[in-house]
Nucleic acid binder design. Structure first.
Lengths: 237, 237
DNA sequence: CTCATGACCAGATGATCATTCTAGTCATGA
DNA sequence: TCATGACTAGAATGATCATCTGGTCATGAG
């Protein structure tokens, strides 16, 4: 029964998150009213506060659920092909996935175009807040199996990947988006920079990736779990 | 006599730009009043409009003069050591110089911290507007002398350098600025990424740089000239 | 005649108060 | 025990008026 309860709660949370995401895309985060979110999900306003402690928390949850879903895809991809754990492959996928998800692009471009100051703090702070993308556990796993350049400080790699990824993600809407430069093409450029900058010059043997894969999967699963905790975490902002 | 005139005008322009820069640092671009700028430079308000067509143009000029000065340094450095023309050396210098100039860091971080929407459009639009940093002429000169990776599309290099530089420049204030990570250290990380991503894997012979240097100098001098034209351009916004 | 000036004006900006809206609470009832 | 929506405090919005400031240009100095 507790199980059924849990499922019910998750379903209701998802319905609310769906409604919030819908409104986010339709009107921008600024205009999302809790009452309307609740109405769209067919519940009372107070019910929203049984799930998330505040409006900001709900908005953050929308982004967090999306992020968790993305990480699930990454994990699945690594399961299928361990070589997908390489930073350039992972970030390529990450870039493409993020750019294709309206909710995430909306959040990302929020401070560039919109002036939704609100959308910034909650969603961004948690979403792209350094750690996830470069996740230390992930990098450690790679380093342990010789999948990063030798003699490089992990903190430096983390800083560098962070800066590069941030640059490609955010400069993208700014640069004259030559339509001939497809999303895939831009993702390839990002992957190229990451690979050349942080990975070994000779392509590592496949078995190295196979050996590292479990740890990478564990790292990403952990991060995904954190996201999901934020997304569904019952109240207590 | 025309020469003396010109000098006088330039001196007066500099005095006005100095005053504007001072006020920019002291109060933020928002609060700069033309009348006060003029007063500080010891001239009448109308005189400002003999130099720049509008308030925005004046603000832009402040940034442009700074940018021109930076490029002068780059040119001087390349003159002294042609190897300084390499993208990773150039951008390293660019990064350090920009980060050390209060006027530029103020402009750069304007949209992150301050909400000076005004400072954005004029200054940023012209300042970091893609072209300068990656300057096509510069890249062509390098490519002609085999100083970029072979078989890479120039447009791709431009896009990539742009994105990477943007990432390091703007993510810098965001990332937890670990004080142990000195400015130089961060500049080195940027240089490393640029070198590995866009330059030949084996360090080119010095004479290659010597051969390319004149063209590089010409390219940068040209860009510096454009900046200066914006900075001192008599009226006609 | 050339160039600098500051009084002047229109529109932007800010301050003040009244009004509406909405996040978050909680007493009530299913 | 859990969901609800009427309720409240405080924030957002709007309306009004006063002040400020960018930009112009007639005037006068050199």
């Amino acid at each position: 029964m507790a199980r059924t309860q849990r499922t019910d709660l998750t379903q209701r949370a998802d319905a609310l998150l769906d409604a919030a995401a819908e409104l986010l895309l339709a009107t921008g985060s600024r205009r999302i009213r809790i009452e309307e979110v609740a109405a769209r999900a067919g519940v009372g306003k107070g019910t929203v506060y049984l799930h998330w402690g505040s409006r900001d928390h709900l908005l953050l949850a929308v982004g967090a659920r999306e992020a968790a879903a993305m990480l699930d895809l990454v994990v699945a991809a690594v399961r299928e092909d361990p070589a997908e754990a390489a930073p350039h492959r992972y970030l390529r996928r990450h870039f493409l996935e993020a750019m294709r998800r309206p909710v995430l692009t909306t959040i990302f471009s929020a401070d560039v175009s919109e002036l939704d100051a609100f959308a910034r703090h909650p969603a961004r702070a948690g979403l792209r807040a350094s750690k996830p993308i470069g996740s230390r556990a992930y990098l450690s796993a790679l380093a342990d199996h010789g999948l990063l350049r030798a003699h490089t400080d992990l903190a430096d790699v983390e800083y560098g990947i962070q800066a590069v990824a941030y640059g490609f993600f955010t400069s993208d809407p700014l640069q004259a988006t030559d339509p001939s430069r497809s999303l895939e093409h831009r993702a390839d450029r990002l992957a190229d920079v990451i690979r050349r900058s942080f990975e070994p010059s000779e392509t590592p043997a496949p078995d190295r990736y196979a050996a590292a894969a479990p740890h990478v999967i564990e790292a990403f699963t952990g991060v995904a779990g954190e996201y999901r905790r934020v997304a569904y975490g019952t109240a207590a902002d």
